[in-house]
């Protein structure tokens, strides 16, 4: 089985007024293509920082991050943006829909960025899959939290990413809505064969994945393969 993501000796250190703060220290792991992985840990353990590095949103201070065989540390910010557009999908805790775009337009953006044509049908199909075909013309402010996250899911899958990063995808949702969104996320993931990396506090959600990487104080304290893999 191939690895879509390789993290080798990755550290992230912030410097502030002469003080060094090590947020991640010598992290090593690889993620197999098509697998589902949860990164868990208490607040301040470095989960979000790690997600940022894995997704090419930030550069490591040392070590090597390789996504789909591409060494992200040697790319410029614009090159990393192109990598994200080609291989990565995102789901954010606070949805991060573009407030000035309708639900449909939000879903179309990643494909439009690629310069693809005739994408409306594909985007509408995705909205249909998340049950929001009838809300395609609505702006984020006109949607509930759960609906916004479903639009966010449709957007994340619209460019058929090789890997999907979800940052606390249910953090802003109630239990019932969370369940629906999680089910939808896993269904879409299975259907598309996408690798899924979820950063979460929620151990129930983490338990639904194949593997759980536990962080504490910026280091990996556990890397567990879960039974239902």
């Amino acid at each position: 089985m191939e690895h879509i993501l390789n993290i080798q000796n990755v550290s992230k250190i912030y410097e502030n007024a002469g003080h060094k703060l090590t947020v991640l220290d010598q992290i090593n792991f690889s993620i197999q293509t098509g697998s589902t992985v949860a990164i868990t840990g208490p607040s301040g353990s470095g989960k979000t920082t790690l997600l940022g590095l894995c997704a090419g949103l930030d550069r490591s201070s040392s070590g090597k991050v390789s996504l789909s065989g591409i060494d992200l540390d040697h790319l410029t910010e614009d090159e990393r943006a192109a990598v994200r557009n080609r291989y990565v999908g995102f789901i954010f805790q606070n949805f991060q829909l573009l407030p000035t775009l309708t639900a449909l337009e939000n879903v179309m953006v990643p494909l439009e960025l690629r310069g693809e044509k005739n994408i409306k049908k594909h985007a509408l199909d995705l909205l249909d899959k998340v049950g929001l075909a009838d809300r395609s013309g609505h702006y984020p402010v006109q949607l509930s939290g759960g609906e916004q996250q479903r639009v966010s899911l449709a957007r994340a899958f619209s460019n058929q990413p090789a890997i999907l990063f979800a940052d606390e995808p249910t953090g802003n949702l109630d239990a019932e809505t969370s369940d629906k969104v999680i089910k939808l996320m896993f269904d879409l993931n299975r259907e598309a064969g996408t690798t899924l990396v979820i950063v979460t506090h929620d151990l129930d959600l983490a338990a639904k994945t194949n593997r759980m990487i536990k962080l504490k104080g910026g280091v990996v304290v556990a890397d567990l393969v879960l039974n239902h893999a």
Partner: peptide, 9 residues
């Protein structure tokens, strides 16, 4: 967000 989705600078 747009930068996350691949918009360059």
């Amino acid at each position: 967000t747009l930068r996350c989705l691949g918009l360059n600078a």
